[in-house]
Simulated assay, not measured.
Amino acid sequence: MDWFYAIVYGIVEGITEFLPISSTGHLILAGNLMGVPWPKEVKDTFEVVIQGGAILAVLAYYWRDFLKIRHIGTDRGQQRLWLGVVVACIPAVVLGLLFGDTIKANLFRPSVVAWALIVGGVVMWLVESRRSEPRVHDIETIGVGRSLLIGAVQCLALLWPGFSRSASSILGGMVLGLDRPTATRFSFYLGVPTLGGAALLDFIKSREILGQIGIVNVVLGAAVSFGVAYVAIGWLLRFVSTNNFKGFAVYRVVVGALILILIATGVMTNGSLA
C-alpha cells in the first residue's frame, strides 16, 4: 500500500501547496483518514521532501521567466525582483534556524493546525472585505521594503502551523498594496528557495529514513505532486484574475472545524506530530 499512500499524499500536496488553504492541514487530515502506518519520522520527512515536486512545478510553469535571470547583471527589473525574493526569505530562515525545532515540538499538532485554518480563514475574509485599491501590478516593482514585510508576514506559517505559507505571503502582499495576481505570483517565486531548500535539506539528511518506504515511492509522490501542482498553479492564476479569496476563507473554516470534530470524536488523535 505504500505506493497508494505516496500517490494520495502527492495529490494532496500538489493541490494544496500553492492554494491558500494549508498543505500541512490537509496532509495531516489525509494521513489520519487513511491510517497511514508509516513511522512518524518517515511521514514527516516524506511530506517535506515531496514539496520538491511542487517547487519543480513552479520552475516548469515559469521557465521562461526564470531564464531571464541570466540577464540579472544588466536588467534592473530582474535585479529588483530577485533582491526582493532573497530579502523576503531572510525572516523565515532566521526564525527557522533559531526556533524551528521548538515550534515543531510544541505547536505541530492537529488542534493547532485546525485553529490556524479557522483564524486564517477569518483574516482572509477581513482582508478581502476591507482592502483598498491595489497600487502594485508588476512583480518587478514590489521593492525591497515590501518584500521584507511580505517575508516577515510569511513567518506566520512557521510560527503557527496550518496558517499556510501561501496564504500568509499572498495576504501580506495584498495588505501592502499588491493586486491578487501579483501577490500570488510573488508567493510562487518566494516558495522556490523557501520550500525547495527545506525539501532538498531533508532529502539529504534523511535518505536512510525514506528508505523504509522505498525511494521509488518517494519519487512517485514527488512526481504526482509535480503534475498536480502544475495544474493547480495555472488554475489559481486564472481564478485570481477574476475572483477574490472569500471562497477559500470559508473552505478553511470548514476544514478546520472538521479537524476539531474528528479530534473531539476520537477519530483523530491530538498528539504531537513532531
Rank of each mutant, 00 (worst) to 15 (best):
V122K: 09
G100L: 04
A223P: 05
R109T: 08
Y189M: 12
G227Y: 13
E17D: 02
F99V: 13
A157K: 10
V153G: 12
V48L: 02
I7R: 06
V224E: 08
I233E: 09
W115P: 05
R70L: 15
L98C: 05
Y62P: 03
A232K: 15
I213Y: 02
G25L: 01
A274K: 14
V49Q: 05
G162C: 11
V228A: 07
T141S: 14
G177Y: 08
D2F: 00
H71I: 01
R80M: 10
D2C: 00
D179N: 15
P110I: 15
A198T: 12
Q51W: 00
V48A: 01
L98Y: 01
L273I: 14
L210S: 07
D75A: 10
S206M: 04
V49E: 05
G211N: 13
G31H: 11
L33Q: 05
S132P: 01
R252H: 09
V250D: 04
V144R: 07
A264W: 07
V228C: 06
R80Q: 12
I204L: 14
G100T: 04
T182Q: 02
L178M: 11
I139M: 04
G247R: 13
F163I: 10
G100V: 03
A105L: 06
A183H: 03
V85H: 00
L117P: 10
I7Q: 03
S23R: 11
